[in-house]
Computed example of a mutant assay.
Amino acid sequence: MLRVRPILFTASFENTVEQLRQLGLACAENDGDRAVLDTGNGKVGVCRQAPDHRGTLLAFELRDPVIFVQRTLADGTHAELAETSAGPGARVNAPDGFSFELASSNDLRLPDPGAPLAVVVTWRTPNPTAANKVLADIGAKFVQDRADGGALFRAKNGGFVATAAGWSSGVELGIMRDGEHLPLGGGGESRPL
């Protein structure tokens, strides 16, 4: 099981949650400081901005962190069991030092084939080829190549991640409706952890 669930850290928590709801995302959780919104094809986590976190972080959900770490290490990408922002899970470290978390989840639903919305995260990196290997090693399925050397990958349980060339590693959150990108206010790039 693998689902895209980027985390958006924002000083405008309530406004961000409302903006995502207006785009059509369903609020699955909200405790006032952390919310999870679902498109039916990937989820988005929203957290109040903290001093050590800003912008958007790449993150996923998975079923079994122990098996995930074993398989990812066997495929050649560094992974370890770790505490995530949503509880127990795993952390993956890309060759350039960029890292992301994968939180354990019991939600094994596959993407809704009729869902008009989808989460599409863009991982900008100086080395798209290495990022492509990391995504393949964690179980994301290759969809298509991109002109800049990046590629588009699909997570089995929902959401997409595109790799793209960039001067430094960072993440951009996108929501698509019927193949068209929807405007998101603000935005931001992550930084290596």
Score class of each variant (00 low, 15 high):
V119A: 09
T16Q: 05
F100N: 05
A50L: 12
N15M: 01
L20G: 05
H78I: 09
F9T: 06
A136Y: 09
G159W: 03
L62T: 15
G188Y: 03
S169Q: 04
S104Q: 14
V143S: 05
N30H: 06
E180F: 06
L135T: 11
E80A: 15
S85Q: 10
P95I: 10
L8T: 09
E29W: 02
R191F: 10
F68T: 14
E61H: 13
A26T: 10
R154Y: 02
T10R: 09
L25H: 12
F153M: 08
G149W: 05
P192L: 13
V121C: 13
L81Y: 11
D96Y: 13
C27D: 00
V161W: 04
E83F: 00
L184E: 01
V36G: 00
V17P: 11
G24L: 12
F160Q: 07
T77K: 06
G186M: 06
A28V: 07
T10A: 01
D52C: 15
P128W: 06
L57T: 04
T125R: 11
N127I: 06
D38P: 03
D38M: 15
E172D: 12
E180R: 13
L182I: 04
T125A: 10
M176T: 07
E18I: 03
W167H: 13
E80F: 02
L193R: 10
D137Q: 12
V134L: 09
V46I: 15
G158Y: 03
A79C: 15
A118V: 03
L58S: 00
I7R: 04
R71Y: 00
G174K: 07
D107E: 08
D137V: 13
N41W: 03
A26F: 00
S12D: 11
L81S: 01
G187Q: 08
W123P: 00
K43R: 15
A164F: 10
G170K: 09
A82I: 12
R21M: 14
F153V: 08
V44E: 07
T10F: 12
N41T: 00
L102E: 08
S99Y: 06
T16Y: 04
A35T: 10
H53F: 14
G185R: 15
Q144S: 14
K43I: 07
V4C: 04
L25Y: 02
L8R: 00
L23S: 12
Q19M: 15
L182F: 10
R5P: 00
P113W: 05
D137P: 01
D112T: 03
Q144P: 00
G24P: 07
G139A: 01
Q49I: 05
A59G: 11
P128S: 01
F98R: 07
T16G: 13
C47S: 10
L110S: 13
T163R: 02
G76L: 06
T16I: 12
R154T: 02
L173A: 04
G87S: 03
P95F: 04
D96V: 09
R191S: 04
D31H: 01
H181I: 02
L73A: 06
L110M: 04
A86W: 03
T56D: 01
A136N: 07
F98E: 14
R48Q: 00
R3N: 05
L37Q: 15
